[in-house]
Computed example of a mutant assay.
Amino acid sequence: MSLKLETIAFDADDTLWQNEQFFQLTQDRFAELLADHAERDHLDERLMAAERRNLGHYGFGIKGFMLSMIETAIEVTEQKVPASVISQIIAAGQEMLSHPIELLPDVEATITALADAHHILLITKGDLLDQERKLAQSGLGDLFNGVEIVSDKKAPIYANIFARHGVSPEAAMMVGNSLKSDVIPAIEAGGWGVHVPHALTWSFEHAEPPVDHPRFRELPSLGALPTLIESIG
């Protein structure tokens, strides 16, 4: 028999607020800047390869994305990319780093509804300064009992976070839009994983849903979460 749910943890980007849409808009702008040097599909493939290659160096987030765009621009132009293009890539990244937060539907109401009876955590990965900025601008900071900004999301990281917050994994639930980062590793750590799909999800975060696992659930929207938690107990 599973324990009563005590802790509900939330992902941030594309779970609580919009994120991926700004990456895609910037990638469109990047493609326009390099249109004379590479076809769009080829450029997208080269950029994705650079992002994957650089994750170990720069981690997740806008700064790594910006550096990967610059690296890709140098590669596809055979080191002939104009300084003006590099300057525009940097400007696009800086715009992303200052973009206002856009909360997704039902976010504040859902977290508020759960906060009285549960320990509420935010577990997000990416650049520390940018994630802190987004949380501050979101107005949600006071709703969380703890905030964890990590470099990556793996099962041992979730297990460590649950332990530090004094909760058994069976009594913890992770909610997010990424199967690869939010759902599957939380289940592997012994917790519940709830997938709330977003229309735009970075291809790196795609994975097969563990549909047969007893601690996996999928919801159409965050607003359905309180009812799900009540049904689990």
Rank of each mutant, 00 (worst) to 15 (best):
L33S: 01
F23W: 09
G190Q: 11
P214Q: 14
A73N: 08
K125D: 03
E71R: 07
V175C: 05
D106M: 03
N19A: 14
I101R: 08
S151F: 00
D212F: 09
H42W: 08
G139V: 12
L200Y: 03
I149K: 13
E78W: 02
I70R: 15
L16I: 12
G64E: 09
P156C: 13
Q21F: 02
D41N: 12
R46D: 03
S231A: 15
Y58F: 15
G233M: 04
H195L: 07
E39C: 03
D182V: 14
A12T: 10
F60H: 13
F60E: 02
G59E: 02
M174T: 12
V167Y: 11
V107D: 00
R215A: 13
V76G: 06
H195R: 02
S168P: 10
P214V: 11
A117Y: 12
L103G: 04
S181F: 09
L25D: 10
G141A: 15
S68K: 06
E218N: 07
K125N: 06
M48R: 10
H206M: 11
W192K: 04
V167N: 12
Q137G: 11
E75V: 03
F60R: 01
D36V: 04
L47K: 06
E208K: 11
A115W: 00
E20T: 10
V183N: 05
A35C: 07
I62A: 07
A92M: 15
M173D: 05
T7F: 14
A207M: 04
M69W: 01
G193R: 03
F10M: 06
I123T: 11
S87L: 15
E148A: 05
D130H: 05
D28T: 12
D182P: 15
I74L: 14
L143E: 08
S168G: 08
A31M: 00
A38S: 07
A31V: 03
I101S: 01
S138V: 04
L122D: 01
H42N: 03
D14A: 12
D182Y: 14
V85G: 02
P220V: 04
S2H: 12
H119W: 00
Q131P: 02
T77S: 14
K153P: 02
I232N: 01
A171Q: 10
W17Y: 13
A91C: 08
E218W: 00
G223I: 05
I89V: 10
Q18D: 13
E132S: 14
Q94K: 10
S68W: 06
E188I: 15
A159G: 09
I187T: 11
E108F: 01
P156F: 15
I149V: 13
E45L: 06
D127K: 03
D142Y: 09
M174P: 12
S203Y: 00
A159K: 11
G93F: 07
A186K: 02
L143G: 06
A92C: 12
T110N: 06
H206W: 09
Q94A: 08
G233P: 13
S98L: 10
W192P: 01
A224N: 08
I101F: 05
L219Q: 08
G166L: 09
F65I: 09
F216W: 14
K154A: 13
S98T: 11
V196W: 02
G233A: 10
V85M: 03
Q94F: 11
G61D: 07
F30G: 03
